[in-house]
Design a protein around this nucleic acid. Structure first.
Length: 414
RNA sequence: GGAGAGAUACCCAAGUGGCUGAAGGGGGCGGUUUGCUAAACCGUUAGUGGUAGAAAUGCCAGCGAGGGUUCGAAUCCCUCUCUCUCCGCCA
């Protein structure tokens, strides 16, 4: 949610921001109008309520005053009904307006305008044609897709034997790594309620991307960002406790609506996947530095695994709804001869903290203010699994186990 | 799943229609006393959300959440959520 004051006072700037995102202006316009109407009537109703209060005697009112009070009450009731409708309109409209990109976010219309910030690691040279991970995984008995389709449906996978062990090793490795990086480990529920999804920005606009449990207000969480960020919903944190850095491994569930036919093979795009998530709460002064820390923490996983990757700064047309600035980490997939997203590290400014009411008490003046939230994958486990299979494959189909995983897996070759 | 009890401010707790945005206690903060500490005593202390304002400050909301009754609701009615106790079931 944007600061209402900014929308009122810097309307042109907000409008530019929406344009830079290719975001239709009608949401903003609708909001601005509703906001104006609502404030006007709010003042009117407040005034009437105050009059009513002043008129009300301490004990039982005499008949004459009672008449006046009744009239006043009717007037208030009528206007208040309208006010409630307007208030609802303002609140709803506000939830559909995306965040304002930070000035450093490159301008651009689509992912083609994203900027590669740096490339890290060396792309492996193969003396043979590298196979795609789903082929290696199935041949090697690590993955099974057909059975998963029978049991559940398309876009699900089964990990088997050393495959299951590798996935588990990766989860443990990543959590340990993030603990070294200063993140406190959390094991949250994977089911969340609407309000939490609204707090982080998935609802109300992106309900179609989520699985809802029938007959309840429960949803399968699409990312632990939801649980971790909402761990502090509706709270006021003393400044001394900041930054708060937390991490969690969770399964994530996404409908992948609108991506029919895309990435149908392998582990790249599933309805259920494992992810280690990083969430950070920072003061506005420290949040930019916080994003750098978060990004470095995500990168540390890929560096330790010696997977080649690049850092991409997403342009205004490509950053997510809630984000003001996003770096994607993209890992090298030899079979696709391309980089694929494995982590997305975002700066949300006070957008989520306004929605979820996450505030902090400033040391300087004792006042309460919205803090800044950041999050990123640290990193997507399934895609890391896939990247290891592809980058560490041998001609005979075996896979070298990355050195840092060997203590976890107790194998050097699988 | 069955039966019952509860949710009031930082904590405990009083409050069944107006003088209560809230008694009392604890805690916190300030002070008196004191060699220091403790005790005692005196004083003081709701955070928050919205809105108007350059600000000082004003106004409105707010007693688990949402509705309703009433001129007026912490108090009466309805729905929901959560917590606790007992029984049943279960990893």
């Amino acid at each position: 949610m944007l600061d209402p004051k900014i929308v009122r006072e810097e309307y042109a700037h907000v409008k530019d921001a929406m344009n830079s995102r290719n975001y239709p202006l009608n949401f903003l316009e609708k909001y601005a109008q509703a906001d104006q109407d609502w404030r006007q009537l709010q003042q009117e109703v407040d005034r009437l309520k105050n009059e009513q209060k002043l008129l009300t005697p301490k004990g039982k009112p005499d008949p004459e005053i009672l008449e006046t009070l009744k009239k006043k009450s009717d007037e208030i009731k009528e206007k208040n009904d309208t006010l409630l409708i307007l208030e609802d309109a303002v609140k709803t409209a506000a939830l559909y307006i995306p965040n304002i990109p930070k000035p450093e976010t490159p301008l651009g219309k689509s992912e083609d305008d994203n900027q590669v910030v740096r490339m890290v690691g060396e792309i492996p040279a193969f003396s043979f044609t590298p196979k795609p991970h789903e082929e290696i995984g199935v041949t090697r008995g690590l993955l099974e897709f057909e059975k998963a389709t029978q049991i559940t449906g398309a876009r699900f996978a089964i990990y088997k034997n050393n495959g299951a062990r590798l996935e588990r090793a990766l989860i443990n490795f990543m959590l340990d790594k993030q603990r070294e990086n200063g993140y406190t480990e959390i094991l949250p529920p994977v089911i969340v309620r609407s309000q939490s999804l609204q707090g982080t920005g998935q609802l109300p606009k992106f309900a179609d991307d989520l699985f809802k449990l029938e007959g309840t207000d429960y949803w399968l969480s699409p990312t632990a960002e939801v649980q971790l960020t909402n761990l502090y919903q509706d709270s006021i944190i003393p400044e001394d406790e900041l930054p708060i850095k937390i991490t969690a491994y969770t399964p994530c569930f996404r409908k992948e609506a609108g991506s029919h036919g895309k990435d149908m093979k392998g582990l790249i795009r599933l309805h259920q996947f494992n992810k280690v998530e990083l969430v950070q709460f920072e003061t506005p002064e420290n949040s930019d530095a916080g994003l750098a820390t978060l990004l470095a923490s995500a990168e540390s996983v890929l560096q330790a695994l010696k997977l080649p990757y690049r850092v991409v700064s997403l342009c205004t047309g490509d950053i997510g709804f809630s984000s003001a600035k996003t770096y994607d980490l993209e890992v090298w997939f030899p079979s696709q001869n391309n980089y694929r997203e494995i982590s997305s590290c975002s700066h949300f400014t006070d957008f989520q903290s306004r929605r979820a009411m996450i505030r902090y008490r400033r040391n300087a003046d004792g006042k309460v203010a919205y803090l800044h939230t950041l999050n990123g994958s640290g990193v997507a486990v399934g895609r890391t699994f896939a990247a290891i299979l592809e980058n560490y494959q041998n001609q005979d189909g075996s896979i070298n186990v990355p050195e840092v995983l060997q203590p976890y897996l107790r194998e050097t070759l699988i």
